[in-house]
Design a binder for these strands. Structure first.
Length: 478
RNA sequence: GGCCCCAUCGUCUAAUGGUUAGGACACCGGGUUUUCAUCCCGGCAACCGGGGUUCGAAUCCCCGUGGGGUCACCA
C-alpha cells in the first residue's frame, strides 16, 4: 500500500527532537511504501502563533532531509495546506453535523464553563461538558450564529481499537465528551479540523505523539458521526528529557533541532539517533543510514514506553558518521566551522588538517578547539611540561638538549610522514629516550596543546618552517 | 480523583514459554612506540513486587507499586 502520511505541526516555535522524531517516522512510512509525505500547518490558534516559526519548521525538516511531496511551500492537489486558509471547508463540515443534530451552540461563557470545571475538580470527578448540555443541544437544523463555540454532540460509548504502535487499546465511555468543533473566533479546534483534513487529504496513517492517546475515543466518535472511515492510527511514545520522567519540552529547555545543525551534528546522525530512540530492527545493528531506515523501519517495532534522550549516544553516533565521511565531503560540510585564522590557508592545507583530526572530531563546532595550532603560533604554555608526568622529572638543560637534538634531526628531514617517522625513531635510539619523553616534548613544543594528532602526521602538516620555528620559540622561553 | 498508557543493566534496547538474560552508549582496566582520539580485547551492570497458569515464565493472567498522559474556546 502506498501510504499517505503527514506531519502537522503548529507554528508555535521551533522543532525539537521529540516532534521531529514523529515527523521522521511518518516520513519513513511514506518513503518506504513509495507513498506521499504531506506537511500541513495547523495554525488555528492565533494567540499562540509565533512569527517566523513556519519557516523555522520547514528549514528544520529540509536540513534533516525530510522532504515533503505536498504541503506548505510546495502546494499539491489538496491545497491549501494551511488550516487558517481552510476555514470555509471546516464550516461546511460543521454544518453537516449541525444538520444531523450532532452539533450545537455552546450557550455558556468561558467563566460559566470554568465554574462547572471547578465543581468537577472539587468533587474529584473528571470534567465532562456533556453533563451540562443545554436543553437545545442537538436539535435538528438548530441555528448557530457563529459567535458561540460549536460543540459536538457525542454519543458516549466504550471503544476498543488497534494502534499500529501500541497494539490493542480500549477506553470506556468516560473518555467521550462534547468537544468544541469551532471556537468563538471562527477557527476550528485541532480535534475537529485534523479529522477533516486527514480525510480530504486522503491520509492513510495518522502518526502522532502520545499526548493524543486519551483523545482517540473522541475522534472515533466523530468519525462515526461524520460517517467516515478512520485512518490507521499510530501513537509514538514521548522522548523523555534528561531526568527521564517528563517528556522533552521547550519549557524544560529542549533544544531547537537547528541548534544541532549549528553545533555541527550531521543530519544523518540525528536521523539515525532519533530512529533508534525507541525503535530497532531486532538485530544488533546500532547505526542506520537513511536508506536502511527506509527499508527496515516498521511501526510495530516502535517501543511503547518513552525513551530518554541520551546526549552521549548522539555524540557517539555523530562521531561515527563524521569518521565515515570522505575528506572532500567532510571539508564541504565543515566550511562554516573553521577558526577565523584558517581563512588565510588554502583548501589543500585545510584538508590535510581535517584528515588527521577526523577520527577525534565528534561534532564540527569543536574544529577550532582541535585545530587552532595549525593556523597560528600558539603561546607557550609551560604548564604542559611542568605537569607532564614524565617531563616534569627532567632538568631544564636536559629538556633544552633534547629539543636541540630534535631540531637538528628535523632540520635534516624532508618532512614527509615516512621520513619524519624514520628520523624520530633514530632520535629515540641516539638519545636513548623513551617515546613518552621525546615525543611528548616535541609534540608540546610544536603544538602547545594538551592533545594533538600523531606526531609525524602533525609535523608533516605543519611543515618544516613552522615546526622548526616553534621549537626555536620553545627553546627561547625555557 | 476518573479514564488511559507504560515498566529488562545508569541510558537505548534484544528476547515473542525453555538463553550462563544478548548487544550498544557511558564508565573502569589492558593493548596498538607520546598525549587525545580511533580500533581491538576484557570488566562492571538489569528482568519493579506479590500471587496465579504451566513440567517450565522476563515473556501469559490477576492484584499491587512506580512513572507518564489526559480531563483547554492549545495542539
Amino acid at each position: 500500500m502506498k501510504a499517505r502520511t503527514r506531519f502537522a505541526p503548529s507554528p508555535t516555535g521551533y522543532l525539537h527532537v521529540g516532534g521531529v522524531r514523529t515527523a521522521l517516522f511518518a516520513w519513513l512510512i511514506a518513503r518506504q511504501t513509495g507513498g506521499t509525505f504531506i506537511l500541513r500547518l495547523e495554525d488555528t490558534d492565533k494567540a499562540r502563533e509565533v512569527e517566523g516559526s513556519d519557516k523555522h519548521i520547514t528549514d528544520s525538516l529540509r536540513w534533516l532531509g525530510l522532504d515533503w511531496d505536498e504541503g506548505v511551500d510546495v502546494g499539491g492537489p489538496y491545497a491549501p495546506y494551511k488550516q487558517s486558509e481552510r476555514l470555509d471547508i471546516y464550516k461546511e463540515w460543521a454544518q453537516k453535523l449541525l444538520e444531523k443534530g450532532r452539533a450545537y451552540a455552546d450557550p455558556y461563557t468561558p467563566e460559566e464553563v470554568n465554574v462547572f470545571r471547578g465543581q468537577a475538580k472539587a468533587a474529584k470527578r473528571p470534567f465532562l461538558f456533556r453533563n451540562h448540555r443545554p436543553e437545545s443541544a442537538g436539535q435538528r437544523a438548530a441555528v448557530w450564529d457563529g459567535t458561540q463555540p460549536l460543540r459536538f454532540k457525542s454519543e458516549p460509548k466504550a471503544y476498543s481499537w488497534h494502534d499500529e504502535v501500541m497494539g490493542d487499546l480500549s477506553a470506556s465511555e468516560e473518555a467521550i465528551d462534547d468537544i468544541i468543533l469551532i471556537k468563538s473566533d471562527g477557527y476550528p479546534t485541532y480535534n475537529f479540523c485534523h479529522i477533516i483534513d486527514d480525510l480530504l487529504m486522503q491520509c492513510t496513517h495518522v502518526i502522532r505523539s502520545q499526548e493524543f492517546i486519551a483523545s482517540v475515543p473522541k475522534f472515533l466518535n466523530l468519525y462515526e458521526a461524520l460517517e467516515i472511515e478512520k485512518p490507521l492510527l499510530a501513537t509514538v511514545p514521548f522522548v523523555m528529557g534528561l531526568d527521564g520522567k517528563k517528556k522533552l519540552s521547550k519549557r524544560d529547555g529542549a533544544k531547537d533541532i537547528l541548534d544541532y545543525a549549528r553545533e555541527g551534528y550531521l543530519p544523518e546522525s540525528l536521523v539515525s539517533f532519533m530512529a533508534t530512540l525507541g525503535w530497532n530492527d531486532g538485530t544488533e545493528q546500532e547505526i542506520f543510514t537513511i536508506r536502511e531506515l527506509m527499508e527496515k523501519f516498521s511501526l510495530d517495532r516502535v517501543q511503547r514506553g518513552g525513551a530518554r534522550f541520551d546526549q552521549q549516544r548522539l555524540l557517539w553516533v555523530n562521531g561515527h558518521f563524521i569518521r565515515e565521511l570522505p575528506i572532500d565531503e567532510l571539508y564541504d560540510r565543515s566550511k562554516d566551522f573553521w577558526p577565523p585564522e584558517a581563512t588565510k590557508y588554502d583548501e589543500a592545507y585545510k584538508k590535510s588538517v581535517l584528515a588527521i583530526i577526523q577520527e577525534r572530531l565528534k561534532y564540527l563546532a569543536e574544529l577550532p578547539h582541535l585545530t587552532g595550532f595549525f593556523f597560528t603560533d600558539p603561546p607557550v604554555n609551560p604548564e604542559l611540561v611542568s605537569s607532564h608526568k614524565q617531563l616534569k622529572k627532567l632538568e631544564k638543560n636536559q629538556i633544552k638538549q633534547l629539543l636541540e637534538q630534535s631540531k637538528a634531526a628535523l632540520t635534516a628531514s624532508d618532512f614527509s610522514i615516512q621520513d619524519l617517522t624514520t628520523r624520530l625513531n633514530q632520535l629515540l635510539e641516539s638519545t636513548g629516550q623513551k617515546p613518552a619523553i621525546l615525543f611528548s616534548l616535541v609534540r608540546i613544543a610544536t603544538t602547545q596543546a594538551p592533545a594533538s594528532p600523531g606526531l609525524a602526521d602533525t609535523l608533516a602538516v605543519l611543515g618544516r618552517e613552522v615546526s622548526l620555528r616553534r621549537i626555536d620559540i620553545a627553546l627561547k622561553t625555557l
